[in-house]
Structure formats: C-alpha cells, structure tokens
Design a protein around this nucleic acid. Structure first.
Length: 771
DNA sequence: GTAGAGGGTCTTTTT
DNA sequence: GACCCTCTAC
C-alpha cells in the first residue's frame, strides 16, 4: 500500500506530493491524470489529512465512482467513503438539501431536467402571449442558462443595459420578462434546474457567510478534475470554498476543453496562475495511452489552435500503424466499412467487441452505424442520446414519485393528472391553473381542498369527482410511501395508477419494450434501496433515488460487463480510452459543425473536440468521411473535414482516395463551374489528388470549384467502357459487359470471374479499373 | 374530451 | 425522420 509512489513518473510524483497550497496539473491526453488525482488523494490521507475534509469534484458520476474505488484500494474502504466526491451538480444538490430553505426553497426541491425546463419555458411563452417563432423556447432556455452560469439574476439582468439592448436588438425585448416568469414558475414548483444547483449554491455562499465558513472548514482540501470545463458559476464556488485554506488542486487539459456551449470557460484554467500567485504547476506530457502515430497526428491537429498552454505531449510507446482514412460514398458505406473492419480485427487480431469505440459528432449519426452493426450481428451499445430516464414511460412513473416527494412539482402533476386517461381534460386543467394562480396556491393545494375550492372552479360535479378521485389516489400513495420500501411503492403505483394496464394493452414491439423499461425502472429502484441500505450514511429514501436519477447520465449506467462495441458522441468519450477507435463523419459542416464556424474560438473548440476523439485510441485509430450523407431526411453532399488536412500525410493512410464511380450529385448546376475533366489524373495519382484537393479546400474562394470537381469530375461514362476489366471489393475481378442509365444513376453490367453477372449502381459500387 | 391526421421545425455537443 | 403542435371529426 505504501509503494504507490513507485508507480508514478517523476512529474506525477511531484504533483502528488505537493499537498499544500494551490496546485495546477496540466495533464496531456493519456498522461495518467486519473492516476495522479487518485494517488494524490490517497497520499493526503496517508499523511494525516482527514478524509472527511476532502472534496473532489469530477465531471461525471462515473469518474467519481471509479476514483473512489481506486482510492479505497490504497487507503481502505472506510476512509474512501468519507471523501465527498462527485460532480458539481450532485455534490451541491446534496448541500442544497440542507441549505436551500434559507432561500425559500423546500429541502425536498425537485430537480428539473432539460425536458422539464423546456416544458416550463413553453408554458411561460404561452402565458406571456409571445410569438413562439420569435421567442423560441430552446434558444431562450440557452440564453437564460448563460445568465445563470454567469450569476446574472433577473434583477442583475434588468440592471444591465447591454444585455437588454442585445436582446432588444435580437428582436426579443421581452427576454427579461420571460426570464422572470421562468424563474418564478420554477420557484413556485419548488424546483431547481441544473443551473440553479450552481447559482443557488453561489447565492448561499455569498449571502450567508456562516454557511461559507462552515464549508470552508469542512473542505480543507479541494480537488477539481477537468478544470478546463468549469463554467463561471462553478469557478466561483470553488474559489469561495478554497479561499480560506487555498489547498486547491485543479487538474485538466486546456486542449480538451469542449464544453463552451454549456458555459465552460477555458480562461479558468488559463488564468489559474493569476488567481493564485503562489501556485505550483506541473505538466504531465508523457502519453502512456497511444501509439506514436496517434500522438503525433493529434499534435498536428492541436497546434493549429492559438489559445493554449505550452506543452509537448510525447510517448515512448511503439510507432504503431498509420491511421487509415476512408472515403465513403454514403453514410451507409461508411458504416459498412467500419463494421467490416471491426469484424476483420476481431478475426485476425484477437480483439473483443469491447475494444472498439465508434465516435461521432452528433447523435443522429448513430442510426446508419446501428443498422450496419445489426446486419453483421455485432453487439453494440449506444451511450447518450435519449437516456433511459428520459423515456416517456419512465418519466410517467417517475412523475408520480416526484409528486409524492414534492406536491408543488407542477411539471410532474400536469404530466400525470390525466395519464392514464381519467377524463380530466385541457379545459379543466386551464381552469385549475388560473384559479390556483389567482389564489396563490399550488395546483395540488387546490385539489386537496375541493370542498372549499371546487364549487368556484366552474367545472361540472362529474369533473370535481374525477379530480377528487385523483387526489385521493395520490394521497393514498403518500401513505404507502411511509410504510414501504421504494420498490414496493413503485410497483403499487404502477398498478394502481393504471400505468401498468395501459402499457400492457399495447402489444406492439414498442409497447413491449416500454413495458420492459418500466420493469427495469422498478428493478433499479430495488437495487438502489438495497445498495443504500447497506451503505453507511446511505440514503434509501425516495427523494434520494429521485435525485440520483435526475443527475444520472447514461454513461453512469453500469450495465454489467457486457462485451459490446461502444457508440457515442465525442463529448461523451472524454476521459475514456479504447484499443481501437473509429471517428466517423469527418466532414465539413458536420465535424467541424456548421454551427461552430463563425468565430475562431468556436472553430478551435471543434478542433479540440477532434483532438479528444483521436486521443481516445490506444493502438489503432480509423478516420472516415463520406461524400454524401442523409441529413434532415435528405441526401446532401459533403466535403472532407479541414481537420484531415491538418494531419501530416506521413501519419495517414488514405485507403481509397478516388474510386472511379464518383458520387454524382444532380442538385448542383454543373454548368456554372464548367469542368475540365480531371478524372484521369485523379485516378492515376489518387494520393496527390487527395492532397491537392484538401489544400485547395483551405482557400475559401476555391470551394465551389472544388465541390464541382467532386461532383462531376469522374463520370463513369468517361472511364468505363464495355470490355474493360475491373475489380470490386467484394466480387473480385470482372469484365464490363454493358453500361446503362442516366448520368446520375449509371449502372454497369459486369461479369465477375467468381460471382457471375451483376448489375451494379456505379455510385455505390467501388470499382477499380485494371489496365 | 379524445384520437388521429397533417404540417411545421429542428439537431451540435450535456450536467 | 422525429417531435410537437394544431386542427378536425367524433
């Protein structure tokens, strides 16, 4: 147990041993960051620091859990348990359970997720009678999130002419009113959204010095992982808590800051030394994860960014293979390539499914990949997307539970008041809402006192009865809550509310899945209760369970140790590593995203994202792009990502630069650009062509021309002649027997030596001509 | 009060 | 192609 220091290199060791005062660790990709954090905490404890005085903030729940396990191995289970370790959101939610009443929130406040927040926002905009096309709920929610993350409260907003002018200029002069109404509505429901968890923590630490002092004393040693991704609100919390003892250690990598859209401020890490003059800093530069080729290629990419701290990531690992770059014709083709590579590597090199990850920029890209994986019977798991707890059937049952914990939770109530159907329709609900508002009551308070309020609602006695029945049912669940564990409670609610029956009636495959999901939720309730009961200081309560799932992410779902290919966005892959990584969809407007091309900062973030993607790979990386892709249900053209050209060709292996049957897109008027036929040249010297083309693409004004070349450059008619010998990836050698079809849809009849005669669509068949 | 059809919008990433 | 909203018919 004492020899953990021997497992560290010199710099790592110094970072672990510098226990006092502010410390910054800049940790390059794969440089053993987690190891340093883990051993640093262990080292603190071994040197007499009370585990109880340590606060460690991580980016995901999973990271916290894993670190805790590793620490337990060094210092023992019971010590490790006392450390406060978790995400900002979960740690401060826990603190707010105690402290939030100071701000008028109930201690059993609900945590509104994105869906809830969106739904509140829609109602707010409707209430204020604003044009929903101008006041877009999502946009406003994002704007308000920015306000909150910068500690701009409603009042601060109204005191800030610049912000108000900006919103007025954006034709949204009522933004302040929306903000205010949104905040009030959440408050009335006893609910906090994600940003509130940080904002309200800040508010409490600022307004109540005695509370601040309490937590400063408690958290004498603070560690923050992924510091480059903290936002201003998080930054201020850390700063306040650390200001007494200044035993703060931040770990991160500016090159991996990828959450600006969520308010992350890369300046926090860039300016750490200004915040703490006497800060020691350490740079971990040796990469233990990846091959030289991967590390070098990644360095090629990131050096194009202007805003960054000096560092030189290197590795002593073996050189490794070059990184294949595959040019696909369609997204399906891309998926096919990836899956066949997986298949091949599994067969030939003894890889397991779990050794592979397929990373992409947007969740929507998973579809084509899934289809291809299913076709080849390769087990996979998708991370992210719609998480389990966001599913309708799950949220329905959870809403019953939420209402039990917090009767003011309006989102929950409105979701279930008429689901399953019990004849309480929109007009009734509207009347209830208006009445509750006028009398400053919550909806449920009105419903609990129907004797008093019922006659004044202006609804029929039949409806009153229905409302009464619903209220009685909820109250009876409240009784169950007192006498049962949460699993039994959940089961009873599912039965008595009619949810279970409604789902059972639906015998479609989707319906059956929903049923299974509900069962899964109940299982997880049981699992949670059992686990927490065994845990010292555990919280087996319903409230604890709800908080847990509100802040859970998909990646946290430790779904047994199944052997599956992982599919996820690059964002989700941060902090993970895989022997073989595919980065798919390396196309302009996709990666980098078209939304992030407006400023240098945005583009640099996309570049960091690509850097993160590539550095996930240990032994082998593959990069793929497609010249056409289905988006918005339409097929659109695509050009290779500018990031590909940023990597030196000596690290890359262009797999199939120019198949003769180029995708021929008819959407663009080819006559505009004219066209010298360049196809001949392309085919003979594919690599040069690639290079040239990519270089061209960096010059903006040449883009249209370059595009035109891709589209009409290599017409199959120019290339293919009857009698020509060709080779096909799957069918092998053959001879062209006939050509037919429109220019955009040409077909060739080819007699293959082994597979017989085939009729192939040239835009999909990858043929090479044999001379 | 409900169900189903049709039409418009949207997707970049997430605690 | 998914989702949400609105409209229409019962």
């Amino acid at each position: 147990m004492a020899n953990y220091l021997d497992e560290l290199n010199e710099v790592q060791k110094l970072a672990v041993q510098a226990t006092q005062g502010p410390v910054m660790v800049i940790a390059g990709a794969g440089s053993g960051k987690t190891r340093v954090l883990t051993y640093r905490i262990a080292h603190l404890i071994n040197n007499g620091v009370d585990a109880f005085n340590i606060l460690a903030l991580t980016f995901t729940n999973k990271a916290a859990r894993e670190m805790k396990e590793r620490i337990a191995k060094v210092v023992g289970e019971s010590e490790a348990k006392s450390i406060w370790m978790g995400t900002f959101h979960s740690v401060f939610a826990r603190i707010l359970r105690v402290e939030a009443p100071r701000l008028g929130y109930p201690s059993n406040f609900t945590i509104y997720d994105q869906q809830d927040a969106l739904s509140v926002m829609r109602k707010v905009i409707k209430d204020l009678q604003l044009d929903i096309d101008v006041y877009k709920p999502k946009t406003l929610l994002h704007r308000i999130s920015q306000f909150k993350n910068n500690l701009i409260t409603v009042r601060a907003y109204y005191n800030n002419p610049e912000l108000m002018d900006a919103d007025a200029a954006a034709l949204k002069p009522k933004t302040g009113e929306v903000y205010q109404a949104y905040v009030e509505r959440c408050f009335k429901s006893g609910a906090m959204d994600f940003d509130d968890l940080l904002l309200r923590t800040n508010e409490i630490l600022t307004r109540f010095p005695e509370v601040l002092a309490k937590y400063q004393e408690r958290f004498k040693y603070i560690l923050v992982d992924e510091y480059q991704d903290t936002n201003h609100s998080q930054y201020l919390i850390v700063k306040a808590l650390a200001s007494r003892y200044e035993n703060i250690c931040v770990v991160g990598d500016d090159a991996q800051s990828i959450y600006a859209f969520r308010g992350a401020n890369i300046r926090n890490i860039l300016n750490f030394k200004k915040d703490y003059n006497d800060a020691q800093s350490f740079a971990l530069e040796q990469n233990y994860r990846s091959t030289q080729n991967i590390v070098n290629a990644a360095n090629n990419i990131i050096k194009n960014n202007r805003d960054q701290l000096e560092k030189n990531v290197w590795t002593a690992n073996q050189e490794g293979n070059k990184i294949p770059v595959y040019r696909a014709l369609t997204d399906a083709d891309e998926a096919r390539f990836i899956t066949s590579k997986i298949f091949e590597l599994k067969m030939n090199e003894n890889f397991q499914e779990e050794d592979f990850a397929i990373l992409y920029r947007t969740n929507a890209q998973s579809r084509a990949l899934e289809e291809a994986l299913r076709k080849k019977n390769i087990p996979y798991r998708i991370y992210g997307g719609i998480s389990f707890f966001q599913r309708k059937e799950i949220k329905d049952l959870v809403s019953y539970l939420r209402l039990l914990v917090n009767k003011k939770d309006e989102e929950a109530l409105l979701r279930i008041i008429n689901y399953p159907k019990r004849g309480i329709g929109d007009s009734t609900i509207q009347k209830l809402l208006v009445y509750a508002d006028e009398h400053h009551l919550s909806l449920f308070e009105v419903m609990e006192n129907l004797n008093q309020h019922g006659p004044r609602l202006g609804v029929s006695s039949g409806v009153i009865k229905k409302l009464h029945d619903f209220t009685t049912m909820i109250q009876s669940f409240g009784v169950l809550l007192k006498n049962n564990n949460i699993y039994d409670l959940g089961l009873q609610i599912a039965k008595q509310s009619g949810l279970l029956n409604t789902l059972r009636e639906d015998e479609t495959p989707e319906g059956i899945t929903r049923m299974e999901n509900l069962q899964e939720l109940l299982n997880s309730m049981q699992g949670y209760a059992e686990e927490q009961e065994q845990l010292e200081g555990g919280d087996p309560s319903l409230q604890g369970f709800l908080e847990n799932i509100a802040l859970a992410t998909d990646a946290d779902n430790e779904n047994e140790d199944s052997n599956k290919v992982a599919l996820m966005t690059v964002h989700l892959a941060k902090g993970l590593e895989f022997p073989v990584v595919f980065v798919a969809g390396l196309e302009e407007n996709l990666f980098p995203s078209q939304m992030n091309l407006n400023t240098r900062q945005e583009l640099e973030e996309e570049r960091r994202l690509f850097y993160v993607a590539l550095t996930r790979a240990e032994q082998q990386a593959f990069l793929t792009y497609s010249v056409s892709r289905a988006r918005w249900g339409k097929i659109i053209d695509a050009e290779p990502s500018r990031f590909l050209e940023e990597i030196d060709d000596k690290f890359l292996d262009w797999v199939n630069p120019a198949p003769i049957s180029t995708f021929n897109n008819s959407g663009l008027d080819e006559s505009i650009f004219g066209g010298q036929p360049i196809s001949h040249f392309e085919r003979k010297r594919p690599k040069d062509f690639q290079k040239k083309k990519l270089n061209l693409s960096s010059k903006k004004d040449l883009k249209p021309l370059e595009k035109a070349k891709i589209q009409q450059g290599v017409s199959a008619h120019q290339e293919l002649k009857v009698g020509q010998k060709v080779i096909h990836d799957r069918f092998g050698r053959g001879e062209v027997k006939a050509l037919s079809g429109e220019p955009s849809n040409e077909k060739a009849t080819i007699l293959f030596e082994t597979s017989g005669e085939k009729n192939l669509l040239l835009k999909f068949a990858k043929l090479r001509i044999l001379n």
